[in-house]
């Protein structure tokens, strides 16, 4: 997988030490890491995949949305879309899954083709997690309250088709469905959003925050995690005044200084900003983490860091729906 050839129309971040971390470190890394097919892999030299390409595009879009890097990345993303509107993890894995709303969100931010966005929204609204299956309904009937305490009648979104609803895929779907232009959203979108939000609140950990989606197992309270909590808070930003949101946001703020990984750090920062609270300084912490491990060359870390530093609040905040008459 070759690195991109020099192009007269590429973004040109400089090596000027006076520049911010995003311009000085993250964007040059992303430009070098791009594959010759226009997409990004999870690490330099690995095959292009949907998630790192979508994050990289979001990180680069604000710098120059018309650049050759953004244009070719967008083309790669469009080529990777399945005929049914979904996206797979990578083209070779074929089956649409949890990356779909995130790829579609990148297209919304980049003024992508309306038909692609509408197809993605339709696939998402028609895709159902396994809770509605006979097997799960039977399990619900047989379930002992002591094993898992959650409302299994609620359907959100799953990581892979037909499996259980989990917090992160549900939050990603909600973030996209809140941003999709109303004329491109299928009629069932509003109801799917309502149930998806209900599921997130149902799966919240008692202390605030979310883990993958098990707030209590065998009567033992689950431990929240930063990634799912941050995405859930972004997805539920319209309800910032709810006690659950405030408790969860407090949990994120309390843990912010001890976050050890750049992806959790960037997402936590985005969540705080999306909720409208003043966010703690991000750049010095990212700098320190970069110095220790160079983010392990993880494209997600560089793109999420750049996105959080430069673009996040603009892309991840939306205007609440007007109240119903």
């Amino acid at each position: 997988m070759g690195l991109p050839a020099a192009s007269p129309n590429v973004l040109k971040p400089t090596e000027d030490a006076g520049q911010g971390f995003a311009d000085r470190v993250c964007l040059p890394f992303l430009l070098k890491a791009r594959n010759s097919d226009g997409g990004w892999g999870y690490r330099p030299g690995t095959a292009s995949a949907v998630e790192p390409t979508a994050w990289s595009l979001l990180a680069l879009a604000k710098t120059d949305p018309k650049s050759e890097f953004v244009e070719r990345g967008r083309e790669w993303l469009l080529r990777a879309q399945n005929g049914d509107g979904s996206w797979p993890t990578r083209p070779e894995t074929a089956e649409g899954n949890w990356v779909t709303p995130f790829a579609a969100l990148a297209l919304v931010a980049l003024d992508g083709p309306p038909a692609s966005i509408a197809n993605a929204a339709r696939w998402l609204c028609q895709s159902h997690s396994g809770e509605g299956s006979f097997r799960m309904r039977l399990a619900r009937f047989m379930a002992r309250k002591s094993v898992i305490e959650q409302d299994l009648s609620l359907q959100g979104w799953s990581w892979t088709t037909g499996t259980s609803s989990w917090v992160e895929p549900t939050a990603l779907a909600l973030i996209f469905l809140h941003q999709v232009p109303s004329e491109l959203a299928p009629p069932e979108a509003a109801e799917r959003r309502r149930v998806g939000e209900a599921l997130l609140y149902d799966r919240m950990c008692p202390v605030g925050g979310w883990n993958a989606g098990n707030p209590k197992v065998y009567g033992v309270t689950g431990i929240p995690q930063l990634g799912p909590t941050a995405l859930a808070l972004v997805a539920l930003q319209e309800h910032a005044e709810r006690e659950e949101n405030r408790r969860s946001l407090d949990w994120v703020a309390d843990h912010f200084d001890s976050i050890a990984g750049p992806t959790s750090l960037a997402l936590a920062h985005l969540a705080i900003e999306a909720s409208g609270r003043p966010a703690p300084a991000l750049e010095p912490k990212l700098e320190r983490q970069f110095e220790s491990q160079r983010f392990l060359e993880n494209v997600l870390a560089f793109s999420q860091a750049a996105f959080a530093l430069r673009s996040g609040p603009d892309v991840l905040r939306w205007t609440p729906d007007p109240p119903k008459q």
Partner: peptide, 11 residues
């Protein structure tokens, strides 16, 4: 159980 692998390695 956790997406942030670097966070685990650092911890």
């Amino acid at each position: 159980n956790e997406r942030d692998t670097e966070g685990i390695l650092e911890a």
